[in-house]
Every structure is written in structure tokens, then in C-alpha cells.
Design a binder for these strands. Structure first.
Lengths: 192, 192
DNA sequence: ACCTGAACACCGTTCAAGT
DNA sequence: ACCTGAACACCGTTCAAGT
């Protein structure tokens, strides 16, 4: 890649991070290009699709979650590991508004630029879930795809302004369905 | 209201019902007006806001849910009544794509045209929840606002194509958190 | 190889003019 | 009282032309 192109790409990404933080995943691409002092077709050249751009913004965090899962697999109780990881997943999925719809679309579309990251994340969750199930700590009738969906739904709740104040408590409620009988390690037990 | 205006209004509503079913809650207003053979400002005159239009489409169903709650309050076990009502709520919220975001926005905004309907619905749920809690059947640390949020989240799951096949099962999972210990009356127990 | 101006077809919103 | 044509400011997407 030519030096000027590299510079444009990096700058576009930095600006996109700001704008998507402000406006969410459906931010105006025109606005991003404008604020990056670049013509719109330049943005399209580097990121042919809105998803390609968001993929680049998200992949880092998604892959970090997969690594984090490996870490947690080796430590603590299976139940606590899963609970902690779920909480961190929701936090990452909430980093930008509107990402949950994207996750849902990407996991189901092999052609999506985000697909690989989502599949990696789901696989990591599936391993943690299986370990907790083997220990009898997690609901047996759940699979990784459903865990992924629950994470997305909980992140979605946090994205809706009027539900956001309840999002933490509702995480606890749903987590208690995934990990029945677990009383330690969740947000509220840890708080008092 | 003048006869021609009434006719326009009714026709707009009928067309909107079709278009919103096809395209979801963010359907093109221009398209609705076009397919109703009416100029765009005519649509704006009758429904000054997209929300005002959707409110009219939804109010009927939302109010029916409130009535349905009254019916269920007087019948069967408190747990079964709540479980049945929750399932029907999710079904109504899934009637049009994108309604869940709208519900979340409307419940938190007193100026929204949908606000009253949402508040009525939440109140109905709160009564059913309180009855189930008094019977020791429902989780004590939940309130009506959280129940409303859970319904919206479950409906949202059903709206995401890739999650939709899991939506029924995830309803059962979440319902089991709201109504712990209940083994009858849910979709899966009823199916075998 | 990379960038840009300019166009195209859309959208929501609003105003002044018609009947 | 009600409806409409037409304009405005936006948007995503793409092409031909520049360096």
C-alpha cells in the first residue's frame, strides 16, 4: 500500500471510531469522510462496505474476547468463568450503539466481513459453556448459538436509553437462568 | 373531519399496514404516500410523525393486550397467567419489524404518541407479575418496567433473522428465570 | 495506484399555492 | 378545510477524469 493511502486509511479509521461512538453503527459515511478531509470514494476504496469499516473497528475487541475466554477456561470455577466472560462480552458489544443488529446479521451471513470474528467469539463461548455444563453448573439445554443470542439481546437492552438503567439487573436475571443456583460472582452479590 | 380527508386517512392506514409489514417500522414514508396515491404532505397532515402513524397501527393490539391481562388475572394459576401473557406480548411486539426499538423509546418519552399505550401495557404486566409474586411463583426482584424490557428483548431476538429460530427456546429460558420452578405451560413442555 | 468532483436516485421535511 | 407541486438539505453509491 502506498504511503498516502496508508495514511488515509489510518486517519479514516481514527475518525470513524469517533463518529461511530457519537452516532452509532449507522453513522453517516459521508460525515466520516468529511471529517477525515477525504473524498467519499476514498472511504469506499478502503472500506467497500459499512460492515467492512465496522469490522475493522470491532475485530480487535472481538478477538480479545476469544483470547480472554482461553484465559478464563484455565482459571476459577467453570460457572464463574462463564459468568465473567458473559459480562465482558456484553460490555464489548455495547461499545458502539447498534452493534448488536450487526452481530446478528454477521453470524448468519458467511459473506459478511464480521462473520469470522463472530464465529470465533461464539466458539469461545461454546467452550466455556460446555465446561460449565459438564460441571453441572450451566443449563444443559443451551448451545453456543443461543448464548451468543442472549449476549446480543442483553447488549441491545443496554443500548435502549430507557432500558439501560435496568440492563445490569436484567443481566443478572438472565445469567441466573444460564447458571442456575449460582449465587456468587454476579454483579449484585458483588455489590453489597 | 371532511369526507375526503377521512377517506385519505383510512386508505393511508391500510397501505401503511401493508408497507410496514413488508419493510418494518422504518419503512419509507414516501413509499407509503406513493402507494396510497396521495401527496406526501397529506400523509404528514394526518400523521405529523412516523410515530403517530405507527401508534395508530399498534394501539389496537397494545390495548388488546391490556384487556387480555384483565382476563388472565381472573383465571388459572398466577404463574400460568403471567407466562401466557408474556408469550402473547412477544407475539404482538413481533408483528412488525423494528417495533421493539419504538417501544423502548416510547416508554421513556412522555411526549411520544405511543407512550400511553406502552404505559397501559406495562401496568397490565405489573399487575400479573405482582399476583404471581404474591403466590411465590415469580422472582421477587423484578418490577413491571423490567418485565416490559424483557418482552422487548425477546421480541427483538425474534426480529433478527439469524436468531429467530432460537427465539422460542430463548423465551422459555428467560421465562424460567422470571417464573422459577414452573414446569408446565411453557412452549416446550406443551409440545411433547 | 490512488484520489476527486460530480452525478444519480433516494430520503424526510416544509412552504407557498391551489381548490 | 384540505390537498399538492416543488423545493431544500440530507443520504449511499458509482463513474469518468485527474495526478
Amino acid at each position: 500500500m502506498r504511503a498516502d493511502a496508508r495514511k488515509n486509511r489510518d486517519h479514516l479509521l481514527a475518525v470513524a471510531r469517533v463518529v461511530v461512538t457519537e452516532q452509532g453503527a449507522d453513522a453517516s459515511l459521508r460525515d466520516i469522510a468529511r471529517r477525515a478531509d477525504v473524498a467519499l470514494p476514498t472511504l469506499y476504496r478502503h472500506f467497500p462496505t459499512r460492515e467492512a469499516l465496522l469490522d475493522t473497528l470491532l475485530r480487535e475487541n472481538f478477538d480479545a474476547l476469544a483470547e480472554r475466554a482461553v484465559e478464563l477456561e484455565a482459571s476459577g470455577s467453570p460457572a464463574e468463568a462463564l459468568g465473567t466472560w458473559l459480562r465482558e462480552c456484553v460490555a464489548v458489544a455495547r461499545e458502539y450503539r447498534g452493534v448488536t443488529e450487526l452481530m446478528a446479521a454477521a453470524i448468519g451471513d458467511a459473506d459478511s466481513a464480521l462473520h469470522a470474528s463472530c464465529v470465533t467469539m461464539r466458539a469461545a463461548g461454546t467452550r466455556l459453556l460446555a465446561r460449565a455444563q459438564a460441571a453441572g453448573a450451566a443449563r444443559a439445554d443451551l448451545d453456543g448459538a443461543e448464548l451468543f443470542a442472549l449476549v446480543a439481546a442483553l447488549a441491545w437492552l443496554g443500548d435502549q436509553g430507557s432500558f439501560a438503567p435496568r440492563a445490569d439487573h436484567l443481566f443478572t436475571v438472565v445469567a441466573s437462568a444460564v447458571l442456575p443456583g449460582r449465587t456468587d460472582g454476579d454483579a449484585e452479590a458483588g455489590r453489597h
